[in-house]
Design a protein around this nucleic acid. Structure first.
Lengths: 250, 250
DNA sequence: GTACGTTTCAAACGGATGTTTTAGCAATGG
DNA sequence: CCATTGCTAAAACATCCGTTTGAAACGTAC
């Protein structure tokens, strides 16, 4: 509007990321909410540009295509978030002397959770919108985005795997990956508000403050991650109330 | 708290559900795979009918619309699955004398897991496809389907909440709902293969047999569900390796 | 002022979408 | 026999999609 050129650069976190014009930012903001809400396929460029108050052709001018726009929307948040995560990990591992003794599981969990919490609490960064978008990316198949992520951010998973492996010595690498898979899954979908209870009606759980999510999810994750190694051993065996006879039908 | 009617509303398997013609079944089968793979919006009716080997107009003849087709695809699997779940719960609660003493958490977990396992192992029922579809429904917003589910299957969540509440006495109803939310989340996305590790590159975890999923997920869920009540108390406070000073950057 | 690179705008393009229409086929029942 | 019913086939329908175009407006440097 009035202010001619308030700031050409947007991202404070990284200096080498592309600087977006004001129009491009308006597009990114509108697209972020709509992509998270409706999904990539169900969101039309006309809806985005209308909500952003810009011309339709601006999308293909500032970004090359709709696919490229989606990638830009995602990476604008993901880049700083990944930096934050790496920072958490560095700080944690430096805090534990020498790098030999095992890490506390809860500390590792918090190194996952804290950046996600910060993200979903900061409305200037899209708030919980990005987490919802992320959870969609986990379920949908965005081939192009997947290639970019594995090429540029594959290190993230490696680092987390190492950290969790240090926190859970005695577990095989495969088992560590399994637990990380489960832990990440529950965390992202909890922050995104993907709630099965909500599907079947109003729920006490959903639409809470992020802090409340953390309060419930951290004990859950820590307990799950530190559960006794069930590989072949003693957890899945028949308990006291195990199934009695055959199936009740069929 | 009368658990009065063991299974009232959930549709019984088999008899009164709509019988489909052969063409309709071909459409349902093709649509199931494509909806699970590509999502509802990205799947065109022309692709469905082409893969099913039927005429395009057959969709709008046998089902009213694309939306109604999606609902039919989902409910064809969901109905029997819900019946199975109710049966598991009935059997479990009958097994525990009188209905007074608490249930074993693992038994409750298995009453969630076993139907999902059976579903994802049976190729005649679409195999793991339905679970993937279900996980999409959890993330996406299918308003029409949500209304149908809450109207016809709301009892399911109530039953599970009661069962888990019996297994975890001393927890508030809200806390029980939270844990069920987290537990369901991790289970469905694990069965669906929605893996964050997979997004960043090849993973050891994905594409395993359903039994392997169960072996890893059951201990994780049991441990998470039985974690000490963290409501206000002692879990989120500073641990031994808690964050030392301020943030590492702004 | 003129030329130039950058950005906006309205309009149109070619194609794909969900849905409807119309005709046609096969079988049933009287 | 004809009429009716259940279903299929091909084509058309209206609309929306992502993308492109060409001209106009902008600020800036010479």
């Amino acid at each position: 509007m009035g202010q001619s050129k308030p700031s050409s650069r947007v991202g404070r976190a990284g200096s080498c990321e592309p600087k977006y014009s004001e129009t491009a930012i308006r597009i990114l903001d509108a697209a972020e909410g709509l992509f998270a809400e409706l999904g990539m396929e169900a969101t039309s460029l006309r809806l985005i540009t209308q909500q952003a108050g810009v011309n339709l052709a601006a999308v293909n001018y500032h970004f090359r295509s709709k696919d490229a726009l989606f990638e830009a929307v995602f990476l604008r948040r993901f880049g700083p978030w990944a930096t934050e995560c790496i920072g958490e990990l560095d700080a944690l591992e430096k805090r534990v002397a020498g790098g030999k003794e095992p890490l506390a599981v809860e500390a590792v969990v918090m190194s996952y959770v804290r950046p996600a919490l910060a993200l979903s609490k900061d409305p200037a960064c899209g708030g919980a919108m990005f987490v919802r978008l992320f959870s969609r990316v986990l379920v949908e198949n965005h081939r192009q985005l997947r290639e970019t992520l594995s090429r540029q951010y594959g290190e993230l998973v490696t680092r987390y795997t190492q950290a969790l492996g240090r926190a859970l010595p005695g577990l095989s690498e495969e088992e560590v990956e399994w637990r990380m898979h489960l832990g990440f899954s529950v965390m992202f979908h909890a922050f995104a508000g993907n709630d099965i209870l909500k599907v079947f009606g109003p729920s006490l759980v959903s639409a809470r403050h992020p802090d409340l999510i953390v309060k419930h999810i951290v004990p859950f994750m820590v307990a799950g991650l530190t559960s006794p190694p069930g590989g072949t051993g003693g957890c899945a065996r028949a308990g006291p109330q195990a199934r009695a006879g055959g199936a009740h039908r069929g």
